[in-house]
Computed example of a mutant assay.
Amino acid sequence: MTRGPTLPAHHLPYLPRPLDAFNTAPADETRALLLHCLHSLRWSDRIAAHRPYPDPAALLAAADEAAYDLSPADLADALAGESLPELPEDTYSAAHMALSAAHAAYEARFGHAFVIYLGDVPADEVIDRILEAIRSRLTNDPEEERVTAADELRRLARGRLLALLRGARAGATGHIAPAPGR
């Protein structure tokens, strides 16, 4: 069986992938964007300095490694830049009061904001998950909680970095911008 003539290839204009934009953005712009993912200058400098990344998995692996290498001072700086997760708009005021009280107790015990990764939690379960986690983690000793908080920061950074890549858009200059609401 013979085939007919092949149609000419249809070429689309080149649209940079989010990782391409991340890899080629100016270092100072990239560091500033990375600070939205984790409030650590050391972490953001390290991630920006090791570009280009061949794929998102390599970027996430580097982000994890840099997060694991944070010193206690770096961790304290990163925690100082965090605040309580936002609650869904329809959360009852009693839930806000319970969360405020639990968070105050947590901050009094550990000296920093409570951090938790909620990326995979359905919106209707957020408040319960936060309150449950705060109450549970209040029983930790300070060293155990430092390790837990560091792991939650690492998970937050990964989630924010993925959101940044998903929401990144190339501007006229090819620079990347954070996803809306980040």
Rank of each mutant, 00 (worst) to 15 (best):
T2C: 11
R3K: 11
P8V: 12
A9K: 11
A9S: 14
H11F: 11
P13N: 11
P13H: 11
Y14T: 13
P18N: 05
L19A: 03
A21F: 00
N23T: 02
N23Q: 05
T24I: 00
A25F: 00
A25V: 05
P26S: 07
A27I: 12
D28Y: 04
L33Q: 01
L35H: 05
L38N: 01
R42K: 13
R42I: 08
R42E: 09
D45P: 01
R46P: 00
R46H: 13
A48T: 09
A49V: 09
H50Y: 12
R51M: 05
P54G: 15
P56T: 13
A57G: 12
L59Y: 03
A61G: 14
A63Q: 07
A63S: 15
D69I: 05
D69T: 12
L70F: 10
A73I: 13
D74V: 09
A78G: 12
L79C: 09
L79M: 13
A80K: 10
E82T: 13
P85F: 03
P85C: 09
P85W: 01
P88N: 10
A94E: 07
A94D: 07
H96S: 10
L99N: 03
A101V: 11
A102F: 01
H103L: 05
Y106K: 04
E107F: 08
G111R: 05
H112I: 11
F114E: 01
F114A: 06
I116E: 00
I116Q: 00
L118S: 03
P122H: 07
E125D: 12
V126C: 03
V126H: 02
L131N: 03
A133Y: 01
I134K: 04
R137A: 03
T139Y: 06
E143G: 09
E144C: 09
E145W: 06
V147Q: 14
T148Q: 12
A150W: 03
D151R: 14
E152Y: 07
L153D: 00
L153P: 00
R154Q: 08
R155F: 10
A157W: 00
A163C: 11
G167H: 02
A170H: 03
G171V: 05
G171E: 13
A172H: 12
G174Q: 04
H175D: 08
I176Y: 00
A177R: 05
A177K: 01
P178W: 02
P178S: 09
P178Y: 04
A179Q: 04
